[in-house]
């Protein structure tokens, strides 16, 4: 039981990588990259978790009550926001690739040449 969260994180990352390697569509590839990234969320939140501890927000319960690690939660929070914008950037690149080469299959893409 105590190794399950780390196994889940490793499995998510591996599944994402498998999707990236075997992908036949760039949008699918970007989605797989997001799966890889969610492995980091699982890992970070699992590192910060503690049994019998509440959220690190001392509004309802006074400061001093046991709380989980807020630092990793802050990392995950910014990670999610940056991940969303980077996904948008990648999808914008996909749109340009489709316009330039007419294909969204990573395995059919050839290097771009000037005046080609």
């Amino acid at each position: 039981m105590s190794v399950l969260p780390w196994c889940v994180a490793a499995w998510l990352f591996a599944v994402g990588i498998y999707g990236v390697v075997t992908s036949r569509h760039y949008v699918h590839l970007v989605g797989c990259l997001s799966v890889c990234q969610s492995a980091t969320y699982v890992l970070l939140l699992a590192v910060g978790f503690h049994w019998n501890a509440g959220p690190p927000i001392f509004y309802d319960h006074p400061p001093g009550t046991p709380a989980v690690d807020p630092v990793v939660q802050a990392l995950v929070l910014t990670d999610i926001v940056i991940g969303a914008t980077v996904t948008a950037l990648l999808l914008a690149i996909v749109v340009q690739v489709q316009k330039l080469s007419g294909s969204v299959d990573p395995q059919r893409l050839r290097p771009l040449r000037p005046n080609a």
Binding site: M1, S2, V3, L4, P5, W6, A46, V47, G48, F49, H50, W51, P56, I57, F58, Y59, P63, G64, A67, V68, D69, P70, V71, V72, Q73, A74, L77, T78
Partner: peptide
């Protein structure tokens, strides 16, 4: 899993409510 307490996070939880007057530790860290 769930039994390790990171010293940094514990220190933030212990010190910051009094030092910065905020109740959301995640926002305080950020």
């Amino acid at each position: 899993f769930g039994e390790h307490v990171s010293p940094y996070g514990a220190a933030v939880n212990a010190v910051v409510p009094a030092a910065r007057h905020v109740s959301n530790m995640v926002a305080a860290v950020n």
